[in-house]
Design a protein around this nucleic acid. Structure first.
Lengths: 220, 220
DNA sequence: GCTGCAATTAACTACCTAGTGAGTTAACCC
DNA sequence: GGGTTAACTCACTAGGTAGTTAATTGCAGC
């Protein structure tokens, strides 16, 4: 019990640039996701990790640059997950269903990411447009979808005339809406789109919808 | 040119409670939609219609109550449009397609409504949950969809096992995403989901998707 | 053990922002 | 034409808010 022991949370945190930066980014992600860009408070982010506001400006420069860094980090996460896609050994229909389910699972597991994207759209994507790292790499998922579509059409099982980007939009819209709009939808229609006991229902519904579209009779 | 004429914009606006209230609501809708709840400024709303901030508090009580009033007004608009639905004279497939297209058209025509709903979801629907007028009436669209689904199943053309609320979610998700997420989607995939020359493409895609799902082979 | 610098702290500024107190004026009624 | 009151104006407050200035401290390399 001597003064030699570094107290658990002594006056002054230990110096660790990487950790401080990472903590700021993590808490900023939560704050921006919960409160929106304008609603998030730089002071509050600093307080939550027991550092000072000055450190945020030291590492990120401004509130706006911090938000951009948060977005870049969030998008890097989904890109990495997409890179691990391994569905092309399946037949086209099963591959598309599996791929749609991966988007479904990702969106469900990352509600903060969904919120950040919603917020960024309110701001008309000005931050990711300005970002150098986000726009550069295209989504690996698009390439995969494109190859599956080609294969499905070659086999004659897919009849719809879509490209990979539009099909990706279709899949995303269902997965995104279910998470992003669950609050207003629940309030208006008394149905919880993210209830655990309805999860499989919606996951199946998504696959049926996409395959129903791809294999449907388009002369209706 | 005598003093008898009321000057167009004299010192002091002419007294008209209904007009002042309506103007506040209209401009508040725009400001909240563009800037978000926290980002919108009460002073700015007042300045844009040449009244004072004090009047906003006189008529609406607080910033939060003003936002709630804005949401109530916006939802009243879509409810009214839904009440004019007249698709039940069509055969079930055509009726569903038409109904989906009406949602498509409404969302496209009212981007501010979409933004407000996105913002309200960031705030976890706290305002519409507290509102007495919004939750009360259920959407007329749900009733209509329910009847069309029954008829389609009776005729044997619809094979999917969905209820009206889930089908409404499916339709809304596509229409909502296309408008709400157009900025980030455009930035990431270089595709403008709301480009005028692709409008018909997406409108058709929506109908094909919903009917593909409803009439599809669900044993895949 | 000393030095140079990255990392951290604390105190501060200038402006913004929701909300209010209290008085003023135009319209309407009789 | 005088009284009543809803509609409106103006000046103000108290606390927040992003961003800054400048001093200090711990650590790595010597």
């Amino acid at each position: 019990m001597t003064a030699v022991h570094p107290p658990a949370r002594a006056a002054g945190r230990q110096r660790d640039a990487a950790r401080t930066r990472a903590e700021i980014l993590k808490v900023a992600t939560e704050e921006f996701a919960r409160q929106g860009y304008t609603g998030a408070r730089v002071d509050e982010i600093a307080a939550r990790i027991h550092t000072t506001k000055r450190m945020i400006y030291y590492y990120f420069g401004s509130k706006e640059q911090l938000f951009t860094a948060v977005l870049e980090h969030a998008y890097a996460g989904i890109r990495q997950q997409e890179q691990e896609l391994d569905v092309e050994h399946l037949d086209p229909a099963a591959a598309i269903r599996r791929l749609a389910e991966l988007t479904f699972d990702h969106h469900e597991a990352h509600p903060d990411f969904i919120r950040l994207v919603s917020i960024e759209n309110i701001h008309e994507a000005e931050h990711i447009t300005a970002s150098e790292t986000i726009g550069r790499l295209n989504s690996p998922a698009i390439e995969v979808i494109g190859r599956i579509l080609d294969e499905g059409r070659a086999q004659g099982v897919f009849t719809a005339d879509v490209d990979a980007i539009d099909l990706h939009a279709m899949i995303s819209s269902f997965c995104f809406f279910r998470v992003a709009n669950r609050h207003t939808f629940g309030a208006l229609f008394a149905r919880d789109l993210t209830a655990a006991d309805r999860r499989e229902h919606y996951r199946t519904m998504l696959g049926d919808m996409v395959l129903g579209y791809l294999t449907g009779d388009h002369a209706r």
